[in-house]
């Protein structure tokens, strides 16, 4: 589904990603872990198409197509979804209106007729139930004045509505209490299917108790320095990142 080859990216001339290689097949869940500042959000943003980053080398192929050529909205229409680490507050645009526009823009892109108001509302109600999203939040301005947990839940709700092929969850677990975490994880798990893939960015093992990954990768200084299965996450939980940092430094010495 997704193949990243030797991806280098920088911002304001500062190199942040230094040769990422990663393959995600349909149905797989990959966890990306790593210390703060190692480039996890940068990778997620580059995949979603944030224009601030300059890709200096490498390629990303999504469903057989060169992804980096596409505008963010085209990537979304083709099935990429990023749950933001810091969802943006947008005053004056209600969540429901925003989602209706998004759903219908994607349908238009894919040559489908727009949903009418009734069809849309019915679908949205079902999805809201799935992530236990309060109806009243839907009528409020997008993320404005939402609590941290509400914002994260809203991200998963949007994911449920848009039904992407590849979801990238950027620290969706941070700032969530255990109940909220469970709801978010349940939402993700319900949406899991053999033709859908997920990349879970986190630096805690906690979320991975609920969303069990097929693979775990450690990102450090803009590179994937270690890959393994879910046991790697447990090991990181126990020992921290220092031993990995030491391994990387030793290899460079």
């Amino acid at each position: 589904m997704l193949k990243i080859n030797d991806l280098h990216a920088s911002i304001d001339g500062k190199k942040i990603l230094n040769g990422i290689n990663l393959e995600v097949k349909a149905g797989e869940v990959h966890a990306i872990m790593g210390p703060n500042g190692s480039g996890k959000s940068t990778l997620a943003s580059v995949l979603a198409g944030r224009e601030d980053y300059e890709v200096t080398n490498g390629e990303v192929v999504f469903e057989g197509e060169e992804l980096l050529e596409l505008a963010p909205e085209e990537r979304a229409a083709k099935g990429i979804f990023l749950a933001f680490q810091y969802p943006v507050e947008i005053p004056g645009v209600t969540t429901i209106n925003f989602l209706k526009t998004a759903v219908n823009e994607i349908r238009k892109y894919n040559g489908e007729a727009p949903l009418d108001a009734a069809q849309f509302l019915k679908m949205v109600r079902e999805k809201a139930k799935l992530v236990k999203m309060n109806d009243s939040l839907l009528k409020r301005a997008l993320n404005e004045g939402f609590s941290g947990g509400e914002k994260k839940r809203n991200e998963i709700f949007q994911m449920a509505v848009l039904e992407p092929k590849l979801s990238i969850l950027d620290e969706t677990d941070s700032g969530l209490d255990i109940d909220a975490l469970r709801i978010v994880a349940e939402g993700v798990n319900t949406l899991r299917s053999p033709d859908k893939s997920t990349i879970v960015v986190t630096h805690y093992q906690r979320l991975l108790d609920y969303i069990v990954p097929d693979y775990v990768h450690v990102l450090y200084k803009g590179r994937i320095v270690k890959s393994g299965t879910k046991e790697l996450a447990l090991e990181l939980e126990e020992k921290g990142y220092d031993w990995i940092k030491a391994e990387v430094e030793a290899a460079h010495a």
């Binding site: 963010p72 969802p87 925003f98």
Partner: peptide, 23 residues
Amino acid sequence: EALFYLRSRGISKPEALSLLMFA
């Protein structure tokens, strides 16, 4: 940031711009 957020949900740039400006 707001523009990117809307675009990342599939809303085209002109449409996103008009949503934000209308708001």
